[in-house]
Amino acid sequence: MLLLNEDQTRDALPFPDLIDALAEMFRTGCMMPTRHHHDMEIPGEPDATLLLMPAWLPGKYAGVKVATVVPGNSERSLPAVSAQYLLSDAGTGEMLALIDGGELTARRTAAASALAARYLARSDARHLLLLGTGRLVPNLIAAHMAIRSIEEVTIWGRSKAKANELATELQSVFPITINSADSLTEALGQADIISAATLSSEPLIKGKALKPGAHVDLVGAFKPTMRESDDDLIKRAEIFVDTRDGCLTEGGDIVQPLKAGLISRDDIRADLYDLCRTDHPGRQSDDAITMFKSVGAALEDLAGAMLAYRNVEH
């Protein structure tokens, strides 16, 4: 059985190929049961979450990801997400590969954001704002650079010191200008693409601060109690999601406005299935504010695992 560690998984999943692999999987579909989602108590800190995410292509490949999300790991300088992915032959049941699930999750999450931005961000988008200082930030930068000519990246974090440190570190990695934000409100008004990857329970992105034509990518806030966007953004934006089933039940940025009556299910313009199958054209106006909410889907993990396996084996 093939074993891929973090570095090997990263090398096996170049973003241009991964974005295309996700697009193909959303176009063609796969079997994807509802994920198992369990809260796990950790004394003295926020609950962790255990996720079991299966998916398969009948007769071809099957896989399951076992992941834990531990918010308290930020205080330990550890990644919030730890995971492994087991890929098998769906015809014989033979175990084919054990893939580092943390790296797979980070890269496929960023790739899904870039896939959405391919349809929703303005073609002349150059300035990317990142909210968060975790593992996803460099992945989101690289993924968005694969689909748009990003020239400047601004990083905002609750800890200015962490944001400064990360900006300095990433400046030596990417051949573009990378800085940290002094004012979130000011940064929101300047960015073409805003990508939030936090575990916030309170809105961070103020809809009134955004300039016309901005695209907002909401990656964090994966529980109904979490939220990264405010009501003004929800009312102002054209809303898109990765999957309707997931976002209507899990993502607080959709669940909370629905419960409050600010939006209805019909206000969701399209999901990635619709966009990748050209059932919806995506952005239709240069001035529109577009918002994409993702909570992740097992088909994304399967697409990534299949790509990694094929790239290494062949």
Rank of each mutant, 00 (worst) to 15 (best):
L3S: 08
L4V: 05
Q8I: 05
P14H: 08
P16L: 11
D20V: 06
M25E: 11
F26W: 13
F26C: 10
F26E: 01
T28G: 00
M31L: 15
T34W: 14
H36R: 12
E45M: 13
P46L: 13
L50K: 00
L50A: 12
L57A: 03
A62C: 12
G63Q: 02
A67H: 01
T68G: 00
N73L: 11
R76F: 06
A80E: 14
A80S: 14
G93K: 05
E94L: 14
I99W: 02
I99T: 04
L104F: 05
R107F: 06
R108L: 12
T109C: 08
T109G: 04
A110H: 08
A110V: 06
A112G: 09
S113N: 11
L115K: 02
A116I: 07
Y119P: 00
A121S: 14
L128R: 01
L128C: 04
L129H: 04
N139F: 12
A143D: 05
R158P: 09
S159W: 07
S159F: 13
A161Q: 15
A161V: 12
E165C: 03
L166T: 01
T168E: 15
Q171C: 03
S172V: 07
V173M: 10
I178S: 08
I178L: 10
N179D: 12
N179A: 12
A187T: 04
Q190S: 11
T198K: 03
K208W: 09
G213W: 07
A214K: 00
A214G: 01
L218Q: 02
L218A: 04
L218E: 07
V219K: 03
K223E: 13
K223A: 10
T225H: 08
T225D: 14
T225L: 09
R227Y: 00
R227Q: 15
E228V: 01
A237I: 12
A237T: 06
V241P: 03
R244V: 12
L248V: 10
P257K: 02
K259Y: 07
G261P: 09
R265A: 12
R269V: 13
A270D: 11
C276Q: 03
R277T: 15
R277Y: 10
R277N: 15
H280I: 11
P281W: 08
D286K: 08
I289S: 00
M291T: 10
F292I: 10
K293P: 03
A297T: 13
A298D: 07
L302C: 02
G304L: 05
Y309S: 06
E313Q: 12
